[in-house]
Amino acid sequence: QRITLKDYAMRFGQTKTAKDLGVYQSAINKAIHAGRKIFLTINADGSVYAEEVKDGEVKPFPS
């Protein structure tokens, strides 16, 4: 399943989102408010992988 960072954070909370991605909650808040195009893939085992689309390139998040 693929979902935006904002939607994932709204569904699970910023604290869990940060923990799942290995970053601080403040980084999640800042990324959402900056309007960054970050998409999360939720794997069947429950693990989460995030990618950011920037300038036409897709890069892992966090980099």
Score class of each variant (00 low, 15 high):
A44T: 11
M10P: 01
Y49D: 07
Q25F: 08
Y49A: 09
K54E: 13
N43Y: 12
F61Q: 02
Q14M: 15
T41F: 12
R2T: 11
V58D: 04
G56A: 07
V58G: 05
M10S: 13
G35T: 05
D55H: 10
S47D: 07
N43H: 10
G13F: 01
I3E: 06
A27N: 08
I42A: 04
G13M: 01
R2D: 04
K59G: 10
I38M: 01
T15F: 11
A9P: 00
G13E: 01
P62N: 04
I42S: 04
A34V: 08
D55L: 07
V23R: 02
A31L: 14
N43A: 10
I28E: 00
V48A: 05
F39E: 05
F39M: 08
F61Y: 13
T15V: 13
A31P: 01
E52K: 01
A31E: 03
N43L: 12
Y8K: 00
Y49L: 09
K30V: 10
T4N: 08
K19Q: 14
L5R: 00
T17A: 12
S26K: 09
K59W: 14
T4S: 14
D55A: 09
V53Y: 14
Y8W: 03
G35P: 03
L5G: 00
F61T: 02
T15H: 14
A34M: 13
S47L: 07
S26D: 11
A44L: 11
A34G: 09
G56H: 08
Q25L: 10
I42P: 04
G35S: 08
V23S: 06
K59H: 14
A31M: 12
N43D: 09
A34P: 02
S63T: 13
V23T: 13
I32W: 02
F39R: 03
A18T: 03
N43R: 12
K59A: 10
G22P: 01
E52W: 04
R2H: 11
D7L: 05
K16F: 02
V53F: 14
D45N: 07
V48G: 01
T15P: 11
T41P: 00
L5W: 00
Y49I: 12
E51R: 05
K16P: 02
G56F: 08
N29H: 14
R2S: 09
A18Q: 03
V23G: 03
P60R: 11
K30L: 12
F61I: 03
Y49C: 11
D20V: 11
V53T: 08
A27M: 14
E52D: 03
A50D: 00
L40I: 15
V58L: 10
Y24L: 14
Y24K: 15
D45H: 05
I28C: 01
N43G: 10
K19I: 11
Y49T: 14
P60I: 07
A18L: 02
I28V: 10
V48N: 01
K30P: 04
K37N: 12
T41Q: 08
Y49P: 00
F39P: 00
G13S: 03
F39K: 02
Y8C: 02
K6D: 08
D7Y: 05
T41N: 11
T17N: 01
I42W: 06
L5V: 02
M10K: 14
G56C: 07
P60H: 07
L21T: 03
A50T: 02
A44K: 10
R11Y: 10
I3Q: 06
Y8H: 03
Q1E: 15
L40R: 00
P60A: 08
P62L: 04
S47H: 08
A27R: 06
Q1L: 12
V23M: 10
K59D: 05
D55T: 06
Y49W: 14
A9S: 08
I3C: 09
V53N: 08
V58P: 07
Y8N: 00
N29F: 11
P60C: 07
K16T: 06
L40E: 00
E57W: 10
G46C: 06
M10V: 12
Y8M: 01
A50S: 04
Y8S: 01
L40M: 09
L5H: 00
I42T: 06
D45I: 04
D7C: 09
E52C: 04
I38C: 01
K16C: 05
D55I: 06
G35F: 06
K6Y: 12
A50F: 03
I38K: 00
T17I: 05
E51M: 07
N29L: 12
T15G: 11
E52P: 01
L40H: 00
P62E: 05
A9C: 13
A18K: 02
M10C: 13
L5Q: 00
A44D: 13
K19W: 08
E57K: 11
S63D: 14
K37E: 10
S26R: 09
A18D: 01
G13Y: 01
Y8R: 00
G35Q: 11
G22V: 03
E51T: 08
I38V: 09
S47G: 08
G46Y: 05
D45P: 03
S26A: 10
V23Q: 03
Q25N: 09
L5D: 00
M10R: 10
P62W: 04
I3G: 02
I32S: 02
H33R: 13
A27F: 14
H33Y: 11
F12S: 03
Q14H: 13
N29Q: 14
V58T: 13
Y8D: 01
Q1K: 09
Y24S: 15
V48I: 13
E51H: 09
I42D: 02
V53H: 11
K30Q: 14
S47E: 08
